[in-house]
Structures are given as structure tokens and as C-alpha cells.
Write a protein that binds this DNA or RNA. Structure first.
Lengths: 212, 212
DNA sequence: TAGTAAATCAAGCGATGGCTTGACTTTATG
DNA sequence: CATAAAGTCAAGCCATCGCTTGATTTACTA
């Protein structure tokens, strides 16, 4: 009989192995980057055999690509959602809080969420070659930031606004990777926000030294 | 006879090999980090034999440590000199320009100077274990920055000032490593300064959203 | 119960890594 | 010239890397 879908234990176990491999890969990518990840360390961590990577993903690189792409998508979606939820009268401080929100929440949460951020940050330094698939999301994220930024900084032309947005994003990425990030991870969400948001907002606003 | 010091060709050639190895190591460290550096690529680039590294430095790690320490010292010295040359009435904009000066000059100069900056930035993410020898210089650099920063930001307590200084340093490091840095490297020194200094100064100043 | 496909496993292959070795060349010294 | 020190070199050792293979286990199907 067809019996439609009684849970197939084989496929379920396979999915569990796949997820375990991807999770282990994400953690190693977060703490050591693409060059510091080895097949055997991933499989040890996931409790799987070395051949499982080839079987489920085809190659180590394909597994890392999958983990990276998932992490990037997760981050960009969270940031776009935060920016889109801002009203048209949002202050620069609120824009900065939304922009840095996903990163700050990851610091407070730790664990997998923080691993996602660290992986995303590493990709910002060493972009894998097949990441053009996400170019559209990157563009939308930047457009969202510019849209909510412009009303607050009418005197700054778009080129500089783009530069400052990239600087702010880079600063957040740096915090995720550098030792200072592990210090932040021990603070409360409120403490993080109180210290970090003014810095991001200040970077957006800029200080030309000419305007009193 | 004693003959004091007639140039010993053997020692001179050895020094040339040592310098070539260290330079090649620095370039590879700058573009691939500590994990992406191989003995054979260094020796190929330097035109030396693989055994030369063991002979002159003891190990690959010792060579990398020497190259990293030299780069760190070069950067910290340049930044401290820039900060020390500021008068007591320096504006926040001038402080930011001095703080970011060595990095901006390296972007404009490219080549070895930029490799030094990239290596320093990488160390900020993956600190080697034997770098406690330079702790004193790091401390002095931070104290210098705080000294020239305080008069401009009397309302900000020291803890936040330290945080903002680390953020600003992190931002500069990020620019050195991320793709945006290669874009900066194609701009003139004036263009770089005009875009970057306001961002750094803004990060120092902060924006709490409470002060109009 | 026999058959089958999904998944797992131990073992090993070829390539590459850091490092060592012993012979060789070069240069200064008596 | 003979000796010794400083440096360079080709070759190889051993570990680890990504990946493959053929056998085996597991869970569903007819």
C-alpha cells in the first residue's frame, strides 16, 4: 500500500546527520574561518563518519558553502526586518539600534546565534566564490539602511552615506570576531546597547569638525 | 689579525635571506592569515630553500612570529608618534585624523606598508600566543589616545571612551581586511581622509540621541 | 521472509604539510 | 693550501589533509 507518509526512520536519521554536520561546520567556521576547518574535526564533533560529508553534501567545500549561505540569509533577513519595522520618523539613534540589533541580540544570546554572526563577519573578509546568489539580499539590505538614514542626514550625499553604512557594518563585524566581542558576550543586552548604539549612530552622523 | 670588521660576505648573504623570508612571510600573512601560510610558498617567493626557514628562524611559526612582531611594532610606533605630536588644543577631528593617520597613509602607499596594516589587523582577530611582549606598547598607545580624547569629550566617562577607542581601532582594522579596503587603496590620500576621518570622529563623539 | 534502498563504517589512496638530514658550496682564517 | 664556519640544497620522513571504496547495518516494502 501507499500509506502516504509514515515517518521513515532512515530519512529522519539522515536529516539529523545532515543538520549535525552543518551545525558543527558553522561552529568551526565561526571560530577558525574557512581555512581552519577540517573534515575530521567536523565529523568528530557531529559524531559522524568522515564519509558522511561526501555522502550528504558532496564535499567539504559544499558543506561549508551551505552553512555559510544559511548563516548569511539568517543575518540579512533579521537586519532587513529590523530596518523595515522602523517608522518614517525614526531618529538616528533608533536607526542605529535597529541596524545593530541582530548583532547585539546575538551577543546576548551566545551559542548558535553568535556563531552565525561570526561566520557572517568572516565572510565579509574572505568571501567564498559562489556567493553571488545572495547579492540581491545584500543590495536590499543596503537600500533599506539608506532609506531610513537619509531623512536623518539630509546634508550628506549618498556616496558618503553608503561609505558610512559599510563602516558601521564593518565595525559590527569586527566586534563579532575580535577578543572585545567575547567581552561583550558577558554583558547584559542593555549594557551592550547603551555602549554600542551611540558609537554606531555617531559613525552614521559623522563629525566634520566644521559644524560647531 | 683582528682586522675588526671587513664585510663578511657570508653573514651579509645570510641577512639578505633572512630579510627576504620575513618579507615574504609578511605578505602571505597579510593576505591569508596565519593558517594560510606554507613553508614552501614563503621560500618560493623569497627564492630560498625550504631548509632556510629552519636554519634562520627555527620553525615556520617562529618566522611568522618575528614578522608579526615587527609589523605590530611598526604600527604602534607610528600611531603613538602621531598622537604624541598633537597639541593640547587639538580638536576631535584632528585627533581622529592622527588616530587613523598611519592606516590611511598605508592605504595610499600600498605595498609593504599596507601588508603591515593587514597583518596587524589579522592579529587583532587571531592573536598569537606569544605576544605578551608588546602589551606595554598597546597600553601606551591606548593611554595616548585617551589623553588627547578626554579634553574633547569631558562628558563621557573613561570606560566608554576606552570602548569607543577600541571600536575606532576595530573599524580601521576592518577596512584593512575587507574588500572595501581594496577600494580605498585606489583612492587618493585626500579622498580617503575626507570620507574616513568624519566617521572615526563621529564614533569617538558618539550620539546618544538625547542632546538635540 | 526475502529484497532493496538509505545510511554508516573502517580502511586506505594520493597529495600536501612542516621539518630533518647529510652532502655540497662559499667565504674567511691560520 | 688546509681548516673551519656559514650558508644552501635535494631528498626524504612522517603526519594530516580531502576524498573514495567496498562491505555492512538499518529500516522499510512486497
Amino acid at each position: 500500500m501507499i500509506q502516504a507518509k509514515k515517518t521513515d526512520m532512515r530519512r529522519e536519521a539522515g536529516q539529523r546527520t545532515r543538520d549535525g554536520l552543518q551545525t558543527a561546520a558553522l561552529e568551526l567556521l565561526a571560530q577558525r574561518g574557512q581555512e581552519g576547518v577540517t573534515l575530521r574535526e567536523i565529523t568528530d564533533r557531529a559524531g559522524a563518519n568522515v564519509a558522511a560529508v561526501s555522502y550528504h553534501f558532496g564535499s567539504l567545500k559544499a558543506l561549508c558553502d551551505a552553512a555559510i549561505e544559511h548563516a548569511l540569509e539568517q543575518y540579512l533577513d533579521a537586519q532587513m526586518e529590523a530596518l523595515d519595522s522602523l517608522g518614517p520618523t525614526a531618529t538616528l539613534h533608533e536607526v542605529a539600534a535597529a541596524f545593530a540589533g541582530p548583532m547585539m541580540r546575538a551577543f546576548a544570546a551566545g551559542g548558535q546565534d553568535l556563531a552565525v554572526m561570526r561566520t557572517v563577519a568572516r565572510v565579509g573578509i574572505e568571501p567564498p566564490q559562489g556567493w553571488e546568489r545572495l547579492t540581491g539580499k545584500f543590495d536590499k539590505s543596503r537600500r533599506d539602511a539608506l532609506r531610513v538614514l537619509k531623512p536623518n542626514l539630509p546634508g550628506v550625499d549618498e556616496e558618503e552615506l553608503i561609505f558610512r553604512t559599510r563602516c558601521a557594518a564593518g565595525l559590527l563585524n569586527w566586534l563579532a570576531l575580535a577578543p572585545i566581542g567575547t567581552e561583550l558576550a558577558t554583558m547584559s543586552a542593555e549594557q551592550i546597547e547603551r555602549q554600542l548604539v551611540p558609537v554606531v549612530a555617531g559613525a552614521f552622523r559623522g563629525d566634520t569638525g566644521t559644524g560647531g
